[in-house]
């Protein structure tokens, strides 16, 4: 504004000077021209200053803008850096977490595997101990059988030899006969004990056949009529050696009782397979167990019966005995096949 009015003043001086000059008033024209020139110089200095000022302002502005730009750029850089860092941190975290997870899984797996191995080892160990014990037990039994057995066999053979001597009294012959029988019986019992060493499979078919075969052989010279009532088709189901032995020994004992005490004229052996159970009946028409035999033989029979019952019950079966004086005896054995399966 000031500059503007000064411009106007300057033009006014110039106008007055020009007019005065035209009018011929040189003094006023000169004075005014001088003022005009002065003002013009001042104004020119002002203009330069203003230009400088303007330039200065422009420069400052530019500088500020640059600074702002710089600041903005550095901000951007910072943000980018932060973003990158964040991303890196995220990846890192994921990596750490998954590593921990994997390690955890491995550790847990190893733990379980070790546990399993341990329990397996323990089981194997226990089994090995059991097997060793069993083997050792059987080895001792076999040694005893072989050593004592052969000695007893010799006693048996020699007693039989003595029995052949016709010059002996009846009593001596009887006693020696008893020695022969006892010795062979002990050998048989020992053999039955270690029979379990036999590696062959025992099947239901084998058991039933064996019962028939043994009974025929055993009763061959016994003066009684023997009938079998056996099933036609017996399965080859494998049964445990224990059950095979206990059942077979029980039948042996039963037949032994008949031959020794019953005085029977009819013997019937019946085997029936029904409802997945095996039922064995041994019937005789003898004098029955309640007879007034000597105390000694009653005691022996009693023991034998106890043994038979014990054998059958030890393999989860039922043992029943019905005996009537002078009518006969029925022994009934009932066992679920499920219990004797191997």
């Amino acid at each position: 504004m000031e500059t503007g009015s000064k411009q106007w003043q300057k033009q006014a001086y110039l106008g007055i000077a020009t007019t005065s000059y035209d009018l011929g008033d040189f003094k006023i024209a000169f004075d005014n021209y001088e003022k005009y020139a002065q003002l013009k110089d001042t104004l020119q200095g002002d203009e330069i200053t203003t230009a400088i000022e303007e330039l200065k302002t422009k420069y400052e502005t530019q500088k500020k803008e640059n600074e702002i730009n710089l600041l903005q750029q550095s901000d951007l850089i910072k943000t980018t850096q932060i973003k990158t860092q964040k991303a890196q941190l995220y990846t890192k975290n994921i990596l750490i977490i998954s590593s921990i997870f994997v390690i955890l899984v491995i550790v847990v797996s190893i733990y379980f595997i070790l546990q399993k191995q341990k329990s397996k080892n323990e089981l194997e160990k226990a089994l090995a101990i059991k097997v060793t014990e069993e083997t050792e037990r059987l080895r001792i039994a076999k040694d005893i059988h072989d050593d004592l057995g052969s000695g007893l066999s010799k006693i048996n053979f020699l007693s039989e030899l003595i029995v052949k001597d016709k010059n002996l009294t009846n009593e001596t012959t009887e006693n020696v006969q008893s020695i022969a029988e006892t010795s062979i019986k002990i050998v048989e019992n020992m053999r039955d004990l270690i029979w379990i060493l036999n590696p062959e499979n025992t099947t239901l078919f084998g058991l039933v056949s064996r019962i028939r075969e043994y009974s025929s052989d055993y009763l061959e010279d016994y003066p009684a009529e023997l009938t079998f009532n056996f099933p036609n088709n017996v399965s080859e189901t494998t049964i445990s050696k224990e059950s095979y032995r206990e059942i077979f020994m029980t039948i042996k004992e039963a037949l032994n009782n008949i031959v020794k005490h019953a005085k029977a004229t009819i013997i019937e052996i019946q085997i029936e397979l029904k409802n997945s159970a095996i039922e064995i009946l041994i019937k005789d028409n003898g004098i029955g167990i309640v007879s007034n035999d000597s105390i000694k033989s009653n005691f022996l029979i009693g023991n034998g019966l106890k043994n038979m019952r014990y054998r059958i019950e030890s393999i989860g079966g039922l043992f029943k005995l019905e005996s009537n004086a002078n009518i006969g005896t029925i022994i009934k054995i009932l066992i679920s096949l499920e219990k004797i399966k191997n």
Binding site: G149, S153, N156, A180, V187, P199
Partner: peptide, 27 residues
Amino acid sequence: SFEDTESVFNALKVGANGYITKTTQPV
């Protein structure tokens, strides 16, 4: 000593005619 079927069977295959167990009564 035992009625070891496997052994007896093998013996029969190579020419044995029969078998008895050691607990067979002398008669």
